[in-house]
């Protein structure tokens, strides 16, 4: 009787993060199309002549295969698929930010094919030198939607009345936009136009950019709980970035 081989899974993936493990290996957090977030050990990848060394880089689409039954799988192969230039300058920090959101908000082994496509598209846009903030905001809104926390951006909370672009709103987590009374002010104040712009991923208006950033910061803080975003802190610590 021949020994049973472990089943091998394969598919498209991105490297989200890698940490050194033992003398010559790495533990790599992959974001795969069909299986979601999968941690694998890449054996011998830190050896000087490892062929995988240059391949297992973040922000690059890869074709990977792995096997194993436990939580930590073993990487079998990784191939460079190409098509997305390496991120440059500030876009690298934005890429790290997207990765940190995925690492902290997506649980392991939970497939999100839609989110995989959204992530791929966001990285593609970052690599093409698009304005960075709109890419981040669109990604954040889509990320929450894919995780089951779609934002009601076109209707008021409870009453479901359509949002009035000329009115001002505050946003109640898990309820939605609540219209502000005449003269009422709020820490995170949103114009109706901002909400409608966000619903359609339009971020040309500086006011939309500013208000949407505050709203998403509030919502992400809620979903992250006690976890800090290192990337955001480090971007702020870099004085002239």
């Amino acid at each position: 009787m021949s020994a049973q081989r472990p089943p091998v899974e394969s598919g498209q993936a991105f490297v989200l993060h890698a940490i050194a493990w033992r003398e010559t290996s790495q533990i790599i957090e992959l974001f795969t199309r069909q299986h979601g977030r999968v941690p694998v050990v890449a054996k011998g990848v830190r050896r000087a002549r490892s062929a995988l060394r240059g391949v297992l880089q973040p922000f690059q689409p890869l074709g990977v295969s792995w096997f194993g039954q436990g939580e930590l799988r073993t990487l079998k192969s990784a191939e460079w698929q190409g098509g997305i230039p390496l991120l440059q300058g500030r876009a690298i920090f934005c890429g790290f930010y997207l990765n940190e959101l995925l690492l902290k908000l997506v649980v392991r082994d939970d497939p999100h094919e839609g989110l995989f496509d959204i992530y791929t598209q966001a990285i593609q846009r970052l690599s093409e030198g698009d304005a960075l903030e709109p890419v981040l905001r669109s990604f954040e809104v889509s990320l929450l939607r894919e995780l089951g926390y779609a934002l009601p951006l076109q209707q008021e909370a409870d009453s479901h009345k359509p949002i009035d672009p000329g009115a001002n709103y505050r946003f109640e987590v898990e309820r939605g936009p609540v219209r502000l009374r005449e003269g009422e002010v709020h820490a995170v104040q949103l114009s109706g136009k901002t909400l409608l712009d966000m619903a359609e991923s339009r971020y040309e208006d500086p006011l939309t950019l500013n208000q949407s950033k505050q709203l998403m910061r509030l919502l992400l803080a809620h979903h992250l709980g006690h976890q800090d975003l290192h990337t955001r802190r480090i971007i702020q610590e870099l004085p002239s970035l």
């Binding site: 993060h17 990765n99 290192h230 990337t231 480090i234 971007i235 870099l238």
Partner: peptide, 10 residues
Amino acid sequence: LSPLDGMGPQ
């Protein structure tokens, strides 16, 4: 700099 490991400018 390694933002995901919390390694910042300091």
